[in-house]
Simulated scan of single mutants.
Amino acid sequence: MNVSVKWEGVYPALLTPFTADDQLDLPLFEKNLHAQLDAGIHGFIIGGSLGEASTLLNDEKIALLESALGVSDGRVPVLVNIAEQGTKQAIARAHEAESNGADGLMLLPPMRYPADSRETVTFFSSIAQETSLPIMIYNNPYDYKIMTTVAMFEELAKLPNIQAVKESTRDLTNITRMRNAFGDRFKLMGGVDTLALEALLMGCDGWVGGLVDAFPQETMAIYELAKAGQVAEALAIYRWFMPLLELDIHPKLVQYIKLAATATGIGSEYVRAPRLTLVGAEREQVLQVIQTSLANRPVLTTVH
């Protein structure tokens, strides 16, 4: 039985841990999931950009889904990301996710092809009509070169299972545009770590996080304090967190965040080719950021 997706709170975009011989490291994956649940996160997202989706085989995605469903055991929803070049393939992945127990989907626009507005709306709509699962549209024109505009969401609003938006435009005014246009029709989830507190204060319902993969407690503290109106306390943690959060907006975010998760004991550095693990001065520079932050880790404020 599917877990209801409320589209609020903190949803880690999960890393995919590998072994030294390039197999899925499911025990380490599950260790990270338990750390996330212990911190109080609200949902899991499998196979996103941070999960190295483009390098995963379909059966590996299913193995990760089954593992996450087992750990979650109905406590939080488990979402599968769909990132495909073709509509037919995207529909097939949606069917697989649904038949294997996923609670919801995150949809990226078509990969590689710079689809226009009509093509993008048709792509999203075609997938939504082929599944009963609730859907979050990933709006990230910065990385994927396709902007899902308010006018496009007016069309998508006709489909009841398109329920949420991962807001990664890097334009905070877009949150207000969406609220002005649609009220609460779409749940909004901030999707850029370095704008996360701002997005929450502008009215986002939740945070799809990256550094949460290494620092779940701190991520949850910021979310809970922001939602409780304890902005000064949230801001103090956020300012400490910012050098780490900036690791999320780099082309090597996977390697950087995996290094952070290794430092906190809930990840490993292994990545899948063509990515390579960090070496030399770059690795030392990122480690310095991580180690400096760990040395100054804040005492977390509780909500009152």
Score class of each variant (00 low, 15 high):
1 M>C: 10
4 S>K: 14
7 W>V: 06
12 P>F: 00
14 L>G: 10
15 L>T: 13
16 T>F: 07
16 T>L: 04
22 D>T: 05
25 D>N: 15
26 L>R: 05
31 K>N: 12
32 N>Y: 02
37 L>N: 12
40 G>R: 01
41 I>R: 13
41 I>T: 14
48 G>I: 01
48 G>C: 05
52 E>M: 11
52 E>V: 04
56 L>V: 05
62 I>F: 07
66 E>C: 03
69 L>W: 03
79 L>P: 01
85 Q>S: 14
86 G>D: 12
93 R>G: 00
97 A>F: 00
102 A>N: 00
103 D>F: 00
105 L>F: 01
106 M>P: 02
109 P>Q: 03
112 R>L: 13
122 T>C: 09
123 F>I: 05
125 S>M: 06
126 S>M: 07
128 A>T: 02
130 E>Q: 14
131 T>E: 05
132 S>Q: 12
133 L>Y: 01
140 N>V: 05
146 I>M: 07
146 I>D: 04
150 V>G: 05
153 F>M: 13
155 E>R: 12
173 T>G: 12
174 N>H: 13
177 R>L: 11
181 A>L: 05
185 R>M: 04
190 G>T: 07
202 M>E: 06
213 D>S: 15
218 E>M: 02
219 T>S: 15
225 L>S: 09
228 A>K: 06
228 A>P: 01
232 A>M: 11
240 W>V: 03
240 W>N: 11
254 V>K: 06
258 K>H: 07
259 L>P: 13
261 A>G: 07
263 A>C: 10
268 S>L: 01
270 Y>Q: 14
277 T>P: 09
279 V>D: 10
280 G>A: 08
285 Q>A: 15
288 Q>L: 12
289 V>R: 13
295 A>V: 00
